[in-house]
Amino acid sequence: MLELRLVQGSLLKKVLEAVKDLVNDANFDCSATGFSLQAMDSSHVALVALLLRSEGFEHYRCDRNISMGMNLGNMAKMLKCAGNDDIITLKADDGSDVVTFMFESPTQDKIADFEMKLMDIDSEHLGIPEAEYHAIVRMPSSEFARICKDLSSIGDTVVISVTKEGVKFSTRGDIGTANIVCRQNTTVDKPEEATVIEMNEPVSLTFALRYFNSFTKATPLSNTVTLSLSSELPVVVEYKIAEMGYIRFYLAPKIED
């Protein structure tokens, strides 16, 4: 028996909007730790890891570890039917091939049940090793989204370079080139507006911009985003989900032959 009640149902709606275009089908894993997902995009260039900790749910019952295969497009369709203020409850019986999403309006005057078919998905769980990153950049998530969108109108790839000067995002295309430098800036009114750069070593990596633009669909989940970079390792683009966990996107760099 599985029963997860999330008072801030909009979080789950936002999570699905953030991942549904990157990954088609995925297994959601439920354990005492929480509700999690790990999946790669179909070309195995990017990986998404989601964790919503059990403590973040108002009610969390998971009698045994369970893995539920879902089509994320269909799940997003169902969650779109929940209001932004609704409480969302996920329910599944042991051995069942369906999951039920229950949406309750805040005043309890409307209660809806949506039942979705589960699917068998062969997925490979990957071990993500702990790594010491050469540089970690924290910046407003809206600023990062703006940079990715702007650069993708010029080129297809972005070079991210971190030096003591700051973090530089560069692209080039048929019409010309673009460079955007963000310097560390901690003298802001609110901490979430700061750009903070921790650099152990300078690092420069090249990535496909279209993946970054997909990751920025997670922007509504967090005011800030963290980029962790090391040479010849996938970049980690992390959006923290307040009081619940995180959504992390890993993107393999482009590598010189």
Partner: peptide, 14 residues
């Protein structure tokens, strides 16, 4: 042009 890397060459199946 640099070649696109693959996640599976960095992270191993667990």
């Amino acid at each position: 042009d640099p070649k696109q890397g693959n996640i599976l060459s960095f992270f191993k199946k667990s």
